[in-house]
């Protein structure tokens, strides 16, 4: 099963998989938006974001809109390539 070799351990969790799916087809996405799309509670998402940031798969931008802080996220090139490889791995597993 050659597909397994392409799978990335970072995407074992469905939350991280979902997070990458959203970020890979959008530019900067806000925390609240991700939370709503994944239907998650607060603490749950933060740890997954932190894990992906640590391995440089996503980058974080903190800014202020008026007086409100706004945190947005974007996928890096490293993350994009890893995610693509993971998807092709999944596809190979299905086709085998």
């Amino acid at each position: 099963m050659e597909g397994y070799g392409l799978l990335n351990k970072a995407f074992d969790s469905r939350v991280r998989l979902g997070l990458m799916s959203i970020l890979s087809v959008n530019e900067w996405v806000s925390y609240k938006e991700i939370k709503n799309l994944l239907e998650l509670t607060d603490g749950n998402l933060a740890s997954h974001i932190h894990a992906l940031e640590k391995i440089n798969f996503i980058e974080i931008k903190k800014q202020f809109i008026g007086k409100k802080p706004l945190t947005t996220y974007r996928v890096t090139n490293i993350g994009k390539n890893a995610f693509k490889e993971h998807i092709s791995g999944l596809e190979k597993l299905i086709n085998n």
């Binding site: 597909g3 469905r14 998989l17 979902g18 799916s21 959203i22 890979s24 087809v25 959008n26 996405v29 938006e33 799309l37 994944l38 998807i87 999944l90 596809e91 597993l93 299905i94």
Partner: peptide, 17 residues
Amino acid sequence: QPENDLGLIKDLMEKST
């Protein structure tokens, strides 16, 4: 599992755009 994962990826890509 791979089918479920790909389904989730596709759903979220569509929903978020």
